[in-house]
């Protein structure tokens, strides 16, 4: 990083007041965060983020490494609860309910807000059992035939059905990386979440597998709300409708993807998308 950029950053941060663009939506939002701070021990990783995620929209989150994208995404389904030192302040709402409320059951929250991880992480069980696991533990189906149908539908939606339909009882760990990731998406869809969070879902995949997953995201956006973290600007441009730019734990700018990639308002956003740093 050269000195001039550093200067820009520091001067920007000294005068940083609020997020540029339309972080808050006019209509109804599926999820919204209000003045959210996240701390790891004494270290603050997220600073006062206000952001809405609308129904059936694909929100891309971009920003330089270490800016807190994963941290922010993980607060949305309370995956950060598993980290002892992680503390969250502010409000995070799902359909108007605070998900960090004492009465909120984290198990049913995660059934409503599903997550796909950066590295494909299938269970070392059969392909069928991977997809059937969610419906089973939540008791969503009562008969085997019904479960079979759910598994098939989920695998079809994740466009992997044709590749695995003859080997459902074989271990999922025998699939290729791209297939595994699509299986993980199928597994997430099988509990029919309202929101799907994806943390760099294509970072371990080749361009062909990536293209398939991007197609998949486009299809899924008809029924689901999707928030996706990505390092690929092209990917953000291809799949998302809105884009949020994070920088050092702050939400700098939010806007329609077209606008962010063609005419960003903030200097930092512009620097990042034009590749001047990051």
């Amino acid at each position: 990083m050269n000195t001039s950029v550093k200067d820009t950053m520091e001067s920007t941060f000294a005068g940083w007041t609020e997020t540029v663009g339309n972080a808050m939506l006019e209509g109804e939002a599926r999820m919204s965060t209000r003045n959210t701070d996240v701390f790891y021990g004494d270290k603050q990783a997220i600073f006062g983020v206000d952001l809405d995620i609308g129904k059936n929209e694909v929100l891309a989150m971009i920003g330089p490494s270490g800016c807190g994208k994963s941290t922010f995404l993980r607060t949305l389904n309370r995956m950060n609860d598993t980290i002892d030192i992680c503390k969250i302040k502010g409000e995070i709402l799902l359909d108007g309910e605070n998900i960090y409320d004492k009465n909120m059951d984290v198990v049913s929250l995660r059934a409503r807000v599903g997550m796909v991880f950066q590295k494909p992480n299938p269970f070392p069980k059969s392909i069928y059992d991977n997809v059937a696991y969610g419906p089973r533990i939540h008791g969503l189906v009562s008969r085997r035939a019904e479960l079979d149908e759910v598994v098939e539908t989920a695998l079809r939606k994740a466009s992997i059905w044709d590749e695995v339909k003859d080997r459902l009882d074989q271990p999922a760990t025998g699939l290729s990386g791209g297939q595994q990731q699509r299986l993980c998406i199928a597994r997430t869809i099988a509990v029919s979440p309202e929101v799907i969070l994806m943390d760099e879902p294509c970072s371990a995949l080749d361009p062909i597998a990536t293209a398939r997953i991007e197609e998949l995201i486009a299809e899924l956006s008809e029924n689901y709300t999707i928030a996706i973290v990505t390092h690929s600007m092209q990917q953000a441009a291809r799949v998302s409708t809105r884009t949020a730019y994070f920088h050092l734990g702050r939400l700098i700018e939010v806007g329609s993807t077209d606008k962010i990639f063609t005419a960003p308002d903030h200097k930092l956003t512009e620097d990042y998308i034009t590749g001047r740093f990051g």
């Binding site: 598993t82 997550m115 992480n121 533990i137 939540h138 993980c184």
Partner: peptide, 13 residues
């Protein structure tokens, strides 16, 4: 591996 735990928790286990 922690990823297996995260996968299970992420599904609502």
């Amino acid at each position: 591996p922690p990823s297996i735990r995260e996968a299970a928790l992420g599904l609502g286990a």
